[in-house]
Design a protein around this nucleic acid. Structure first.
Length: 305
DNA sequence: AAGACTCACAACCGCTCGATG
DNA sequence: ACATCGAGCGGTTGTGAGTCT
């Protein structure tokens, strides 16, 4: 924490006005809080000026978002929140704002700090533990306890530092779904390292990958999607049957996909998938460039081939 | 009791991106 | 096409508080 710096006149705006830096005083908090409650958020530099604060807009924004906002949840993270953060981080990486968006009342800064100070350390401990004696049946490792059936992260944490092919697929899958809000279920393909991701999600929220990996998808109360830990992901090679079932489910249960389904019928699922893929592109809901940019940020994905 | 060390977290910094002129 | 500005994001720093020796 920083001391309020009375001499902090080193920040100067365009009008040669001096900005305070450092810790916020209770008086400044009061001013900002009452202004925000009264007038709402506008241009932040206006907020700073109109609230009578000698702060830059950026500083006001940060203070409001990270500390003063009335909907903030204060206090320690619950075990459920902890598990969710770990799970989301395994899917999204250091995209703190996206992670925070899935944790009501928590800020990206808070989560980032929590991750860097607490979770990172535990993961480090875990990795040293797992190097010598990793027990996949042990639900309590390095201070973590497993409290929900969906986030028994102890089992999949080893993938965080060196993602396995399965975690890669999981990540790709989630990125796809994240980018396709209209496609709660669907069949899709996309290039990944060494070939194409080909998979399906059916109405039972199960996903199937061409290499035979399959598992289930869960949706939280906010509609957020969670993929369970990998121990629940099977490795059957009966991909064709699974895809067939997925097609059938999509066909009979989903009106949106009923309209698309003619395109994904037939012997060659890949052709159908490509047709569907093209249609999604045409509808503008699938931003491939954006998706690829997104996915390519994962160091373990190689799109050079 | 006091100094050293560690932890947690508020706040800053630099950068990118989109909107606007 | 370019410059400017505001907003937002992720990385990093600095420091008060707690703990250890």
């Amino acid at each position: 924490m920083r001391k309020p710096d009375p001499s902090s006149g080193n920040n100067i705006d365009n009008n040669n006005k001096k900005f305070r830096k450092g810790l916020w005083s209770p008086e400044e908090d009061d001013k900002l809080m009452s202004y925000m409650l009264k007038s709402g958020q506008g241009c932040w530099s206006d907020v700073a000026r109109n609230a009578g604060l000698q702060r830059c807009g950026k500083s006001c924004r940060l203070r409001w978002i990270n500390y003063l906002r009335p909907d903030l949840k204060r206090g320690a993270f619950s075990p459920q929140e902890e598990e969710l953060i770990i799970h989301l981080h395994s899917l999204l990486g250091n995209r703190w704002s996206q992670i925070a968006a899935r944790l009501p009342g928590r800020t990206d800064n808070e989560i980032k700090n929590f991750w860097n100070s607490t979770i990172k350390k535990r993961l480090k401990n875990l990795s040293s533990t797992t190097e010598s004696s990793y027990d996949p049946n042990n639900k309590e490792i390095a201070g973590f306890t497993s409290t929900t059936q969906h986030y028994q992260h102890a089992e999949f944490m080893p993938m965080l530092n060196s993602p396995s092919p399965s975690s890669m697929q999981e990540t790709v899958l989630n990125t796809i779904i994240d980018r396709l809000p209209m496609l709660e279920h669907g069949i899709m393909n996309m290039p990944v390292a060494g070939g194409f991701f080909n998979g399906a999600i059916d109405n039972n929220k199960e996903f199937y990958l061409e290499n035979g990996v399959f598992g289930s998808v869960n949706f939280g109360p906010e509609g957020d999607m969670f993929v369970p830990p990998l121990e629940s992901v099977g490795t059957t090679c009966d991909y064709n049957l699974k895809v067939e079932n997925a097609c059938n489910n999509i066909d009979t249960n989903n009106s949106y996909h009923n309209s698309c389904n003619n395109k994904i019928r037939g012997e060659n699922i890949r052709d159908g998938v490509e047709n569907l893929f093209q249609e999604e592109l045409a509808m503008g809901e699938w931003d491939l460039e954006e998706l690829m940019k997104d996915v390519s940020s994962y160091p373990f994905l190689d799109f050079s081939s």
